[in-house]
């Protein structure tokens, strides 16, 4: 099963490689990983999407907690949460296809952020499923380039991952 694990860690050089190294050394898979500093510059927040049986996820969270640089973590699937990912997608849009692409972007609440005579670059935010769906509805040969941010997650309500 897919899990989103949010991690607060010391903003030290090499902290990211400790997490990446842990996953490769123990054969866990990473579907996406995103990291940036928080409002406290000494802390980074990482969001990691992985999948596995309950036993594997338990080991992953234990092994992550064991890393000295990890301050705190949270498995988002243990609480109500919001998940977002951003995609920038460059699509061929010329002649008759131009309106169609524009319409699809509107349906998905995407924003066109760059235009040329035969291209649109669209910004789209949502769950990973939503981004997948948008890619699916486009003609594959029209897609020039896809950039995805990886998933971010945050708990709903009062619950928060903070020290």
């Amino acid at each position: 099963m897919r899990h989103i694990i949010s991690i607060l860690m010391e903003n030290e050089s090499g902290a990211l490689s400790r997490v990446a190294g842990l996953f490769s050394a123990r054969g866990y898979n990473i579907e996406s990983l995103t990291v940036a500093t928080t409002e406290d510059p000494s802390l980074s927040r990482m969001t990691l999407v992985t999948s596995g049986t309950e036993d594997i996820i338990e080991q992953i969270t234990k092994q992550l907690n064991k890393l000295i640089d990890v301050v705190k973590l949270m498995d988002m699937y243990e609480c109500a949460h919001i998940e977002r990912e951003m995609m920038l997608i460059k699509v061929r849009a010329s002649d008759g296809g131009r309106d169609e692409v524009k319409r699809l972007a509107d349906i998905f609440r995407g924003r066109i952020i760059d235009v040329t005579s035969n291209l649109f670059t669209i910004e789209l935010t949502g769950t990973s499923d939503k981004l997948d769906s948008f890619v699916d509805v486009l003609e594959p040969s029209d897609i020039i380039e896809v950039v995805r941010s990886g998933v971010m997650g945050i708990a709903r309500g009062e619950k928060a991952l903070r020290i």
Partner: peptide
């Protein structure tokens, strides 16, 4: 050296 020893130490520092 921090990279080489990372998987076989409890922790390391540069």
């Amino acid at each position: 050296n921090v990279g080489i020893t990372r998987p076989c130490v409890k922790h390391n520092f540069l």
